[in-house]
Each structure stands twice: as structure tokens, then as C-alpha cells.
């Protein structure tokens, strides 16, 4: 469509550009995101559910209906139940750690101090490092012979024996929790910092005038007001951690004796390495209700504690 516009006596024509046509523009802007969600999330998602009811194996195109056979097999499998429990332990443990550390770090980074920019850069590094590289570095930190943690604890006199970080199931889980927390913590700190910056300044000042000290302001005003923001950070953290394959795979490989398997590693082991696609898919599907519950709970929490309309 052409619009005619008189300009200084000469008629100039102004073509309606794409940006003027809102209905077309809307679809055009939405299309990449929509394609991404449909092709890279929707299709694999449906495929996983379909495969979990099948007898499909890697390397063959045969597809047989298996009903709930895959599910009944894994539910009776102690290794699967261990993996399910581990996924919960690692996810919850690391996120608790993340929330505490991120809140504390945000308080530190809010203050003005010398070298703040450098410190912030260093803080963000773990987030930028590829997970697999970082995990390899951590295997050295937790190494049974060369562990710098053990060495440091020994030198400072805090440790008398020797910790086999990745060799004992309990310690290995702690190690996994530490790495997962380390990975998500910078992101959470940045989110909490942004939340702190958006807190209504006059409410914080009202608390000061009302006579509240630092801790009362922190726990009774700041943190409750930050709750929606923190829950967003936790939501992301839960999703990243629960679905992560690489940290456990590189750090322990699910060992010792399958004691540190989580759902993604077990699904990968059974479905891809073990070629039993049906069972692998069934294991992976168990992540789904877990993540849905978390997502719904978090969004509800966020809505309920929404900062009051002015």
C-alpha cells in the first residue's frame, strides 16, 4: 500500500514498511521463538513420551508398543530409585546453597568498594565457562591424590585423615552439589542484585526511620520483597541442575557403583550407551512431573508475593 504525502510542493511517496504493519510484524517477530520451541522443545518432548511406551532400541527403526513395561521395569530398579532421590538431593541441596550465597554476595556487591568491577567480573566467570571444562577442572580439585581442598584443609590443620571426594558416595554427592551451586551462583547473584536495585527506596528508608536494624531490615523487609525475584532465580537453578548431565557424567560418571546417578545420566547410560531407547526415555520422562510441580509452585509463589500495586 502506498501513501501519498505532499512535501514542499513535490509529491513524495512513502512506502509502508514492514515495521508499520503490526499484524505481519508480530508474526514475524514471534516466528523464530515459536519455531525454536516447537522444533527443539516440542518435538523431542513428544518423542520422549512416545518412546517411553515403546520397545525402540538405538540403531534400529523398529517400533513396538510396550505399554507401561518400561515404567514398571525402572520403578522396580533400585538404581533408578537411587537416581531419582539423588536428583532431588542434588537439586535441593545446590539451590539452598545458591540462595544463601547469592543473597550474601548481593549484599557485598551492593556496597561500594575498591576493585568492585574486577570482583564482579571474577564472580561472573563460572557462569561463562563451558560446563564440561569446568567439571574437568573440578575433577582435579576433588582428585583422590592431588585434591587442593584436602591439601588446604591439611595445611590449616582442619583435616587429619584424607577425604576421597569422588570415591565415597556421600562425599561424591556433596562434591556434585558444590559444583552445581558454583555453576548457578553467579547467575542468581546477578538476579538478586537486580532485584535489590528495584526495591522501592522509600520502603527501605521507612524501615530505617521505623528503627529497624540491619538484620531486621534484611529478613523482614528486604528478603520478603525479594522473594519473587529469588524464586525466579531458584526456578532457573532447579531446571538447570535437575536436567544437567555433564557435571555428574564428568565428575563421577554416576559412580561409585551407580550411587551418584541422577536421572539425566541414567537416562543417557540406559538409553544411548545401553541402546535401550524406551527405558532411557521412560527415565527422562520422570524429570517432567518434578519440573512441572516446581514451575507451578514457583510461579504461584511469585504471584502471591507480588509487590503491591501502588
Amino acid at each position: 500500500m502506498l501513501l501519498r504525502r505532499r512535501h514542499g510542493g513535490t509529491a513524495t511517496t512513502v512506502k509502508r514498511s514492514l515495521a508499520d504493519r503490526e499484524n505481519v510484524l508480530g508474526v514475524a517477530l514471534l516466528a523464530p521463538a515459536l519455531a525454536y520451541v516447537l522444533l527443539l522443545v516440542g518435538v523431542p518432548f513428544v518423542l520422549a513420551i512416545v518412546l517411553s511406551f515403546s520397545t525402540a532400541t538405538a540403531g534400529s527403526l523398529s517400533f513396538g508398543w510396550a505399554g507401561f513395561a518400561n515404567y514398571s521395569v525402572i520403578l522396580r530398579d533400585p538404581i533408578f530409585r537411587r537416581a531419582l532421590a539423588n536428583t532431588a538431593i542434588v537439586t535441593i541441596g545446590s539451590q539452598v546453597l545458591v540462595v544463601v550465597l547469592a543473597t550474601a554476595a548481593a549484599q557485598v556487591f551492593r556496597a561500594a568498594f575498591h576493585g568492585k568491577r574486577t570482583a564482579r567480573f571474577v564472580l561472573l566467570l563460572p557462569w561463562a565457562v563451558p560446563v564440561s571444562l569446568a567439571a574437568i577442572a573440578w575433577t582435579w580439585i576433588f582428585d583422590s591424590t592431588f585434591s587442593v581442598i584436602n591439601w588446604t584443609l591439611k595445611v590449616t590443620g582442619l583435616l587429619h585423615g584424607w577425604l576421597y571426594w569422588l570415591g565415597e558416595p556421600g562425599l561424591a554427592l556433596v562434591a556434585i552439589i558444590i559444583v552445581q551451586a558454583w555453576r548457578i551462583f553467579p547467575f542468581a547473584t546477578v538476579i538478586v542484585l537486580a532485584g535489590l536495585a528495584s526495591l522501592p527506596q522509600d520502603v527501605m528508608e521507612a524501615a530505617i526511620v521505623d528503627g529497624a536494624g540491619f538484620w531486621r531490615r534484611l529478613f523482614q523487609v528486604e528478603l520478603p520483597l525479594l522473594l519473587p525475584v529469588v524464586s525466579v532465580a531458584v526456578l532457573f537453578g532447579v531446571v538447570y541442575t535437575a536436567t544437567d548431565l555433564s557435571v555428574v557424567y564428568i565428575l563421577t560418571g554416576g559412580g561409585p557403583a551407580n550411587m551418584t546417578q541422577v536421572l539425566p545420566t541414567l537416562a543417557f547410560q540406559r538409553g544411548v550407551l545401553g541402546a535401550d531407547l524406551g527405558q532411557g526415555a521412560a527415565i527422562a520422562v520422570f524429570l517432567l512431573p518434578f519440573l512441572i510441580v516446581v514451575a507451578v509452585a514457583m510461579l504461584r509463589l511469585a504471584r502471591r508475593t507480588e509487590i503491591g500495586a501502588r
Binding site: P200, D202, V203, E205, V221, P224, I307, G308
Partner: peptide, 10 residues
């Protein structure tokens, strides 16, 4: 008393 009242919304 603040202009926005600065009540604690939670």
C-alpha cells in the same frame, strides 16, 4: 510519612 506512604507491601 512518605509521599508514597512506603507501606510494607508484604
Amino acid at each position: 510519612v512518605f509521599q508514597s506512604y512506603a507501606l510494607y507491601p508484604h
